[in-house]
Write a protein that binds this DNA or RNA. Structure first.
Lengths: 226, 226
DNA sequence: ATGCGTTGTGACGGGATTGTCACGGGCTTG
DNA sequence: CAAGCCCGTGACAATCCCGTCACAACGCAT
């Protein structure tokens, strides 16, 4: 589970970010208010990502950033910086952003999530053993590829997530609601054909193994080697 | 029989929840109005699940939640939190949800039931063995399939529920009223041929084992290996 | 700006599932 | 034996649920 450190003195913003992060996946969140706290947590908890507001009391956000970059323990942690629109944007673009990114307030939750996922994926491509094998199926987490019958099949991020969830519990029916929650972050029971569509696309890509994804009518789907 | 603690100061809500819970299965319900009561019951009765409204008089729901999490006796009990739409949603997602869940008011009974079942199933693996075996009968709860005489028979959700109920208590006569209540949620004794029809369909699918479902005239049905 | 790959959405249709009803026959009681 | 009561059965219609498709929105790279 990726750990994310949020640094902002405004509680509203911290909450807003937390909401949108938790809606998507399971992250462990750490919150810091001041720059000193931020540096402390960054060093002790070694988060996978830092979201840093540049408007901080006492210690300026840019200073925090530079400190992070100088310390070998935190040097490689990607940072998303939050700035007020137009104000500090220029200064940031002047920096060598490297693996980092920035976002102008007010930002849309969607935008934020995209960047979070991008950065985490870019720097943290493999979590755990990166290959899952079940029968003739071989899922490569780092390449988002599926090896099957000697050929290599490319899957999109969503397709991969969906297939992985089912394939990790072979023979067990995953309920529609659970899948929607775990793949898409939908917490509410919404009426959508999204899941069906992706199942269809998956089955197509699986070719003659498509029937390994069984429909359990009224409940959900289930992976079972045919 | 799972025990559920409902914490809400509004009687309407408590009743709504109770009705919908009882409609589905047998739960033991405990109701609490204040946060202190909630903590008391949670510690003394050790419920399997707590449904907690966050809008409580005197002690805030979140405070109750934190207290629950701090006490080792109640630390592992899953909690479903109820919030007013939009109001406190953010604060909740900020918490480490763990095995918990939340629901925004107004909520649909369906949604609530889904979550209750999910949480109970997830944390109460007593249902773990998803296969029930009686003689030549083998019921796969996950796939809604029945294995019998080497062949696999597909059952619909209703058929499965009905057969499972009878097969779990072999030799015991299930009264019509009970079956109607537990499978269909009918609380009233209504005059319907629905039950008979489904029994017929089940017998058909059981083939030459169809007579394992015996009719107890004037009372109900009974599963008994022929 | 443009094009491409990915993703979500809504409409639509078909098939599976389910409840209801009418009817008939067997069982039970008197 | 006759009258009820109860159940089995088949047909039917309504509904639910899923698969499919075309399309729009979006991000991303060129």
């Amino acid at each position: 589970m990726p750990t994310i450190l949020i640094v902002d003195d405004e509680e509203d913003i911290r909450e807003l970010i937390a909401v949108n992060l938790m809606r998507e996946e399971d992250y462990k969140l750490i919150e810091a208010v001041t720059g000193l706290e931020a540096l402390h947590f960054a060093r002790s908890s070694k988060p996978d990502l830092i979201i840093l507001d540049l408007m901080l009391p006492e210690m300026d956000g840019l200073t925090v950033y530079r400190n992070l970059r100088e310390d070998p323990r935190t040097k490689t942690i990607p940072v998303i910086m939050l700035t007020a629109r137009g104000r500090l944007e220029e200064k940031i673009t002047g920096l060598e952003l490297g693996a980092d990114d920035y976002l102008s307030k007010p930002f849309s939750p969607k935008e934020l999530m995209l960047r979070v996922r991008n950065l985490l994926r870019r720097t943290n491509p493999l979590q755990g053993s990166s290959v899952v094998e079940i029968g003739p199926f071989s899922l490569d987490k780092s390449a988002l590829k599926l090896h099957l019958d000697g050929s290599s099949i490319e899957l999109t991020a969503t397709e991969f997530k969906l297939l992985l969830l089912m394939i990790e519990s072979p023979g067990i029916t995953q309920e529609r609601g659970d899948l929607l929650k775990r793949v898409w972050g939908y917490n509410d029971l919404i009426q959508t054909r999204t899941l069906d569509t992706h199942i269809k696309r998956l089955r197509e890509k699986l070719g003659n193994h498509g029937n390994s994804i069984e429909t359990v009518r009224g409940v959900g789907y289930r992976f079972q080697e045919a």
